[in-house]
């Protein structure tokens, strides 16, 4: 009896699974990076679009009037509500805020979380390390290429300029998405590829097991028949009907057995 380790079925199954693993691995290697990059890019575009819409909805001249200490005034609270509503419309947005230049520095003006217990700054709170994208956003909408660390978490940010009635840039609006959301989207690709690999291996294993099972069964029939004949028992019936190589082997085997039967038959022995 052939041991499972040396069985054709084991070898075929192992070979097929290795093949699936190699193909899946190569697919993963060549597609994961590109797919993740595309997902990050599309997330950046989504943030840019939201930043642009928010900026176009804001009244730049009103924002220019807001000065430190005016947080309880209707003008401020209305703008806070407007930003909060925009942030709420997309559940994956952590915060929307506005910034403006104050001399050489940049300072925060409106915080979408001001009324919801997630306030991080007041009017005039300086941004200690304005990024290049923030500064460039005065000229046009911009997005951070990498995640950045903010007091409210690690985020991916996009900015758009806020215009006054005369078309002058009053400040910028920033839209922050939690980095975990972006990473989750990116890891979805990897997880999907892993899932496909897993399903591919299971399917490959099942297919090869089913195919090889009938093949091995027929080989065992031939082995059993050969063993019986080798012990002098020619009364064997080989019922294998296949159109492949094993079927051909079975036909040859049948002819051989028939010849043995004829030669061992009493009538023919006397010849």
């Amino acid at each position: 009896m052939t041991s499972p380790l040396h069985s054709i079925m084991t070898k075929l199954t192992a070979g097929f699974i290795i093949l699936v693993l190699v193909i899946s691995g190569l697919t993963f290697y060549f597609t994961y990076g590109a797919s993740s990059g595309k997902i990050q890019e599309s997330t950046q575009q989504e943030l840019l679009a939201l930043a642009s819409i928010t900026a176009s909805d804001l009244n730049g001249d009103e924002i220019a009037k807001l000065q430190p200490g005016m947080e309880s005034e209707v003008l401020y609270l209305m703008n806070v509500e407007q930003l909060a509503a925009m942030a709420k419309s997309d559940g994956e947005i952590v915060k929307i805020y506005t910034l403006r230049k104050n001399g050489d520095q940049m300072e925060y003006v409106i915080d979408s979380g001001y009324n919801s217990g997630t306030r991080n700054f007041r009017i005039g709170t300086p941004e200690p390390n304005p990024s290049d994208a923030m500064i460039r956003a005065y000229s046009g909408r911009e997005v951070e290429r990498e995640f950045i660390q903010r007091p409210w978490g690690t985020v991916l940010s996009a900015y758009a300029p806020i215009l006054g009635a005369t078309g002058k840039v009053i400040g910028i609006v920033g839209v922050d998405m939690d980095a975990r959301v972006v990473q989750k989207r990116m890891s979805f690709v990897g997880q999907t590829i892993y899932l496909i690999m897993f399903l591919g291996i299971i399917c490959a294993g099942l297919i090869i097991a089913i195919f090889s099972r009938t093949m091995i069964r027929d080989i065992h029939i031939l082995i059993d028949s050969a063993n019986r004949i080798s012990r002098g028992d020619t009364d064997v019936a080989i019922t294998i009907t296949r159109n492949d190589e094993i079927g051909e082997l079975a036909s040859s085997f049948k002819r051989m057995v028939t010849s043995l039967k004829i030669l061992m038959h009493t009538d023919y022995k006397q010849e």
Binding site: R255, V257, T258, S259, L260, I262, Y268
Partner: peptide, 8 residues
């Protein structure tokens, strides 16, 4: 059909 013993 009968293999080499056909002649017999």
């Amino acid at each position: 059909y009968l293999g080499p013993a056909a002649i017999t």
